[in-house]
Structure formats: C-alpha cells, structure tokens
C-alpha cells in the first residue's frame, strides 16, 4: 500500500503525520537534531515560553518513580524575546510544523504572548494552563472553569488567525466540562493530559525527593489515566483532541488514536529513547499496512463494541 495517508489537521495546521513532541521534553528541537530527522515529525511543540525569561526551580528537579518520573523544572525558559531571536530561526529552517507553548501569570501575559507570536508569523500556539510546578498562573487557570473560559476567549480575540490549542490539566474532577469550555471559548484543539501533581519521599532522611516538594508525574505510569481522559474529552467535543501521557511506542500511540485522539504528543518517551517519535511514526505505518488501512483517519476514535474478554496479548 503505497498511498498511506498519515496526515491530520489540527485547526489550520496540516500535519504530515499525527506524531508531535510534548512541550518541555523537546527543548527547542535542536537538542534532538543529532538523533533524528526532525523533518519527519508531524509537529514540534517547543518548551513553554513566558514573556520574561524564567530561571526555573532549584535542584533536585527530577526523580524517577516506578514506570515514571516526577519533574519540577519550574518552566525554565529563555523568554519571548530570546525565543524569537535565538530559537525561532532554527525552527523556521525545518520542514515541519512547530507550535509554541506559552504560559503566563495573568490573562494579559497570555494575550501579549499570543499577539506577539501571531505577529511574528507563528502558525500555532498551545496554551499551558496546566503546569503544576509554578506558584502563579499555570494550573490555576486550567482548574477553574470561569477563569479558563475568560483566558481562552481573550487570547482568541487578540490572535484570531493563529491555531489555538489549549493544554488541559488532569487535575480536575470533570474533564468533559473543561474540554467543552475550551471548545466553546474558541480553541481550535485541545491537548491532554499535562503531568499529574505527585510526591516522592526519601524514607531515610524523611525529606521530599524534589526541592519543590511536589512535581508532575509523567511516563507509562500515567498512560491509562490519560487514555481515559482523552476518550472522555473526544466524545464531548468536535474539535481535535491531542493525546498525551506515557506514550513510549507505536502501540501506545495507536491506543490514543483509537480512543479518539487526532494526534499524539510524545514527552517522557523522548528522554528514554531520543528516537521514540520516529520509531512511533514507522510503527504506525506498519500497523496500518498490517491492518490494510490506507488512511490514519479511519482509526481515530475507532474503539467499538464491548470488551471481548481476551486480553492474552496484553
């Protein structure tokens, strides 16, 4: 089957395949250029950008946990000005789409960022309203329905052409509600989930393992939770859902697509295997060929019927 169609649309963005990188795990892309052909990626989501550079949290910032890791990087980033000057030129040389993840302490920060990025010719942004590791902004927007609605509406008004993706927090009791708010307030797509606030303790010293005390849990440990949330969100909204959470290989990615994700993001998987994204693209292709499916869109949201009871391959 030579005419395999892997392309998907996220808002106005046409991606050559559904495999994206998750913000905060892929630097500004150059970090991976030694390992993979970046042009093969569906899209690159770069490390979250704030108006001013952020120093990040004191170390230790990460800690491994069973089938996962905690991080409390604290959104260390170069800031908007340096991003445009130092990081954007390299991204522009790539033959793939890139999405700028943005974060702020206030609605006005987000508005300024999205306006500047649109004016700089950026095609798409992802609103980070779900970082668990900073005191102000971040998750406080993502877990409050009224604030989230207001934030997205204001950003939408100020940057009308840009593809607007809202990255949702798993730290809410009702994911469909927040997915719907994102859609109704003008998002072109939603991505979920961000990391899950978590804790690890050293029982010898009685101290938390991270200087920030808590951190965000990521990796295979959170995949089933993420998958359930993506499935719930995809049933609720008409805009594309981008699945994130513990995707390590093509099988994981396909599960998300079947649960209703139009695209997926690979995060922690990149740390374990810097070639994970390419392996996933190749793996999805092989899967489609094996199943004699010529268009990726035919598997999106494909979960059907009830459990057959045979999980012997799991």
């Amino acid at each position: 089957m030579d005419n395999l169609n892997l392309s998907v649309n996220i808002g106005k963005l046409k991606l050559k395949n559904p495999v994206m990188t998750a913000s905060g795990t892929f630097g500004y892309a150059r970090e991976y250029s030694e390992f993979i052909d970046l042009n093969r990626l569906g899209a690159i989501v770069v490390k979250g950008i704030s108006l001013k550079p952020m120093e990040g949290n004191p170390p230790p910032r990460i800690c491994e946990t069973p089938c996962g890791m905690l991080n409390a990087i604290g959104l260390q980033n170069v800031g908007l000005k340096n991003f445009l000057k130092e990081k954007l030129p390299f991204l522009k040389t790539l033959n793939t789409k890139f999405i700028v993840n943005i974060l702020g302490n206030s609605i006005s920060d987000y508005v300024k960022l999205s306006k500047s990025l649109e004016d700089s010719g950026i095609e798409a942004i992802e609103l980070n309203v779900s970082c668990p590791n900073v005191k102000k902004g971040g998750i406080s927007f993502g877990t409050n329905d009224k604030m989230l609605a207001k934030l997205i509406s204001k950003v939408r008004q100020s940057a009308q052409r840009i593809t607007l993706i809202t990255k949702l927090s798993p730290n809410v009791s009702n994911i469909p509600l927040f997915a719907k708010i994102a859609e109704d307030s003008g998002s072109d797509a939603i991505s979920l989930i961000n990391t899950i606030p978590a804790l690890a303790v050293d029982i010898e010293t009685w101290k938390p393992r991270l200087a920030n005390i808590t951190g965000g849990l990521s990796g295979p440990a959170i995949k089933p939770i993420a998958l359930r949330m993506v499935w719930e969100a995809a049933k609720t909204v008409k805009i594309p859902v981008i699945g994130i959470g513990g995707i390590m290989n093509a099988n994981d990615a396909i599960e998300f697509l079947l649960a209703g994700a139009t695209a997926i993001q690979v995060g922690t998987g990149n740390f374990v295997n810097p070639c994970a994204t390419i392996d996933i693209i190749d793996g999805i292709e092989s899967y489609l060929k094996r199943k004699s499916i010529d268009d990726i869109k035919n598997i999106i949201g494909g979960i059907n019927g009830n459990c057959t009871g045979d999980n012997s391959d799991n």
Binding site: F26, G27, Y32, E34, F35, G56, P59, R61, Q76, N270
Partner: peptide, 8 residues
C-alpha cells in the same frame, strides 16, 4: 542531552 532541564 540537554532537553529535560532536570540536571540544573
């Protein structure tokens, strides 16, 4: 390789 920013 510089992506996670964990080792600051």
């Amino acid at each position: 390789f510089g992506a996670c920013l964990g080792c600051a």
